[in-house]
Deep mutational scan, measured.
Amino acid sequence: MDVFMKGLSKAKEGVVAAAEKTKQGVAEAAGKTKEGVLYVGSKTKEGVVHGVATVAEKTKEQVTNVGGAVVTGVTAVAQKTVEGAGSIAAATGFVKKDQLGKNEEGAPQEGILEDMPVDPDNEAYEMPSEEGYQDYEPEA
């Protein structure tokens, strides 16, 4: 019985440690998101679009440190934060509304985080759909 109880105690310690790591990862992701939003706020009209992409990228980098179902929630929060940063930029006159959601080359930025393969159960990952990809044929 002692062996059984000791095993359960060790398992509990492992769960607590994993929860603490997840909590730490979420806190880091939130900190990076805040950094990115402050970065966007300090940019001029020309830099705002690039700044919004930076927020998304920093958040995406930190999301990889967070495991399990938390990833889905962090990704949703990050996307809403990026959308909010863009709205703030438009409201303050840093950028025109028609410039939001495009990178410096004018290509749409939507789907940055949505296409990231995420499995809350950590069982399997699927690649994003290939609808947006084109076949590449090298020139002879």
Rank of each mutant, 00 (worst) to 15 (best):
T81F: 08
E137N: 08
G101F: 15
D2H: 14
E57Y: 06
M127Y: 10
V70Q: 01
Q109A: 05
V48D: 00
G132K: 06
A56I: 11
A78Q: 03
G47K: 06
G36S: 12
K12L: 14
Q62K: 09
A17P: 00
N122T: 10
Q62D: 01
N103V: 10
A90N: 15
E123F: 10
E131H: 11
I88D: 03
V48S: 00
A85E: 02
D115Y: 14
G132P: 04
N65E: 06
T33M: 15
G51A: 14
L113N: 02
H50V: 02
E104C: 02
V66E: 01
E35L: 09
A107V: 07
T59L: 05
A53Q: 05
P108V: 08
P128N: 08
V52E: 00
N65A: 08
T75K: 11
K96I: 02
T81H: 02
A107R: 13
Q99H: 11
G31P: 00
V118P: 13
V66W: 10
Q62S: 13
E123D: 13
E20R: 05
G14N: 06
A107L: 13
V118K: 12
G68Q: 04
G25P: 00
H50P: 01
E110W: 04
M5E: 01
G36K: 14
M127G: 04
Q134Y: 15
T64Y: 05
G47F: 09
A91M: 11
I112G: 07
E57S: 07
E57F: 13
P128I: 12
G36P: 00
D98K: 14
A85D: 02
G14M: 13
A53Y: 15
E123M: 14
V77C: 09
I112K: 05
Q109K: 15
G111M: 15
V66L: 13
V16H: 06
V52F: 03
T75R: 04
D135T: 08
I112F: 04
A29H: 02
D115P: 06
G101K: 03
E139T: 06
V71T: 05
V63Q: 01
A124M: 14
G36T: 12
Q79H: 08
A124Y: 12
K80L: 08
V74P: 01
Q79P: 02
A69W: 15
T22R: 01
K23N: 01
E28P: 01
F4K: 00
T59Q: 01
V16E: 02
P128S: 06
K45Y: 02
G84I: 14
A124V: 11
G84C: 13
K21T: 04
F94A: 14
V95R: 08
L100D: 10
Q109M: 02
K21R: 14
G41K: 03
K60L: 04
P128L: 12
S129T: 09
K43E: 00
E46A: 15
K43G: 00
A85Y: 06
A91R: 06
G14C: 13
G31C: 01
T22W: 15
E20P: 00
V74D: 03
I112M: 11
M116T: 11
G36L: 10
Q134L: 11
Q99P: 05
V48M: 12
G93K: 05
G86Q: 12
E57D: 09
A19Q: 01
A124L: 07
E110I: 06
K21Q: 04
A85R: 03
T44C: 15
A85K: 02
D135G: 13
V55A: 05
A90Y: 12
L113T: 12
A17R: 12
V37L: 14
A30H: 02
E20G: 04
A89K: 05
V118N: 14
L8I: 02
E83K: 13
D98M: 06
N65Q: 12
G106E: 10
V40Q: 00
Q24M: 14
I112P: 07
D119I: 02
Y39Q: 04
V70C: 04
P117S: 05
A56P: 01
V71S: 03
M127L: 14
G73Y: 10
E130H: 09
A69C: 09
V16Q: 04
V118S: 09
Q24F: 13
K10W: 09
T44N: 01
T44Q: 00
E13I: 05
V66F: 12
D135P: 05
A140Q: 02
A27P: 00
D2Q: 15
A27G: 03
A27L: 15
S42T: 04
I112Q: 07
G73R: 08
Q109Y: 13
E104G: 09
G67H: 12
A18G: 02
E126W: 02
G106A: 08
E35R: 12
D135N: 06
H50E: 03
V77W: 14
V66P: 01
E13R: 12
E13A: 07
E139I: 11
G31Q: 13
K60V: 03
S42Y: 15
P138F: 06
G101P: 08
T59E: 00
I88H: 02
L8A: 00
M1F: 00
K97V: 10
K43L: 07
G36E: 02
V77D: 02
E126M: 09
Y136V: 04
G31M: 15
T44V: 06
V74I: 05
V71M: 09
L100K: 03
G68S: 07
S9W: 14
E28N: 03
M116F: 01
T64K: 07
K10V: 12
E139R: 09
T81A: 09
Y136R: 09
G84L: 13
E137D: 06
E126A: 15
V55N: 01
K12M: 14
Q24C: 04
A78I: 15
P128E: 07
G14Y: 15
D98W: 14
T54P: 00
K97M: 04
G7A: 03
Q79C: 06
E13F: 07
V52Q: 01
A11G: 01
V15K: 00
E137G: 08
D121S: 08
K10T: 03
G84T: 15
V3F: 08
V74A: 04
S87G: 09
E57A: 10
I88R: 04
V37N: 00
K96T: 13
A11E: 00
G47V: 12
E46Q: 03
L38E: 02
A140M: 07
D119P: 12
Q134V: 03
K10A: 03
E13Q: 06
M116D: 15
K43T: 03
A90G: 00
N103P: 10
V55E: 00
A124P: 04
A89I: 09
P120H: 11
K23G: 02
T54L: 13
D115I: 06
V40C: 10
K58C: 05
T75N: 09
P128F: 07
D2I: 15
A17F: 10
K102G: 15
D135K: 04
H50L: 11
A69I: 05
V40E: 00
K97P: 11
V49K: 11
F94K: 05
K10E: 01
V70D: 01
P120A: 08
N122Q: 07
E46C: 07
E105T: 09
V15C: 06
V118R: 06
V95H: 14
M1P: 00
Q24W: 09
A19T: 04
P108D: 15
K97T: 07
E35G: 02
V16P: 00
Q134E: 06
T75C: 13
Y133F: 15
D115S: 11
T72W: 06
E20D: 06
P138C: 09
